[in-house]
Design a protein around this nucleic acid. Structure first.
Length: 267
DNA sequence: ACTCATATAACGATTACGTCA
DNA sequence: GGTGACGTAATCGTTATATGA
């Protein structure tokens, strides 16, 4: 793995451009007109979305049935998911038993925190595997929900829209956290690679410096102190015996050709 | 055109609950 | 059975933006 391989990883804390292409019915238009102004960078909704009156906004394949404008009450009652999740408090069960009624639906759509039953402290719901899977599928499809989708999903899962909303919020937070961890790891690796590269270059610089020093030393020697091998015409300093090592000999790792270390074959 | 109050949605940080080892 | 760690649902406070007066 080369340096580029590591560093060319798109470290721009990639909140990619997730373009949403969802269609809204005419009845939604008013709501969306109001809503589109709150959308963030990673969202895009067509500005003109005059579609058929049926809801054809997209949900994940798993939830697609909710995109159809079927009787939502019917769905809620018939839903296989209904009642799967469990609160620790039985008062919620009571709520679900009568959830088919209009009034109850209305109430369930309201914020959980504001009007919890009996003003008791919050009861924590544990989502069932099925619910979680469907939410997960939906999240894969789009990480944010418009109100219509939220409502449909909530009805399908027999949850309150607020709960769906919270789940998506937390899910986005988890995704972001995970991404941050991944980015952090990549940056670490990148840092390590750069450190290694820096060490290598420092070492090479040292070698070059010492080579330069030695070269200038020999250039300053008087000509008389230099002898030349008659056979190979190699220059050697005075007193250099056959056993002595040439001061010009530098490490084999040098990238530069040193004529003094490459005597003729005769030597 | 500008300002201000209000409403709404999203988000980050935090809390609190349920589960598991 | 008690306990701490962990995952996550829920809450709170803040910010950004649109809208209407």
């Amino acid at each position: 793995m080369g340096f580029d391989d590591i560093c060319n990883t798109g470290l721009g804390l990639g909140l990619g451009c997730l373009v949403k292409q969802e269609k809204y019915s005419q009845s939604d238009h008013q709501q969306q007109k109001k809503k589109k102004l709150f959308l963030k960078d990673d969202q895009f909704f067509p500005s003109l979305t005059l579609g058929p009156s049926d809801d054809i906004y997209q949900l994940s394949p798993a939830n697609k049935i909710h995109g159809e404008s079927t009787d939502l009450h019917q769905q809620q009652q018939a839903s296989s998911i209904s009642g799967v999740s469990s609160f620790s408090n039985s008062s919620v069960k009571k709520e679900k038993d009568i959830c088919g009624e209009e009034v109850e639906l209305e109430r369930m759509s309201s914020r959980v925190s504001d009007e919890d039953d009996e003003g008791s402290p919050r009861k924590k719901l544990r989502l069932s595997k099925e619910q979680a899977a469907i939410l997960e599928d939906s999240f894969k499809e789009h990480s944010t929900l418009n109100p219509k989708q939220k409502q449909a999903l909530a009805e399908h899962l027999n949850l309150r829209p607020r709960q769906v909303e919270v789940w998506f919020q937390n899910r986005r937070a988890r995704t972001k956290l995970k991404q941050t961890e991944v980015d952090c790891e990549l940056l670490k690796k990148c840092c390590e690679t750069l450190t290694e590269e820096n060490k290598r270059l420092q070492k090479e610089l040292q070698e070059l410096k010492s080579l330069k020093l030695t070269a200038s030393y020999y250039m300053q020697l008087p000509a008389a102190t230099l002898t030349m091998c008659p056979s190979c015409e190699r220059v050697a300093g005075a007193g250099e015996g056959p056993s002595s090592t040439s001061p010009f000999t530098i490490g084999q790792k040098s990238h530069f050709f040193n004529p003094f270390t490459h005597p003729s074959a005769a030597c």
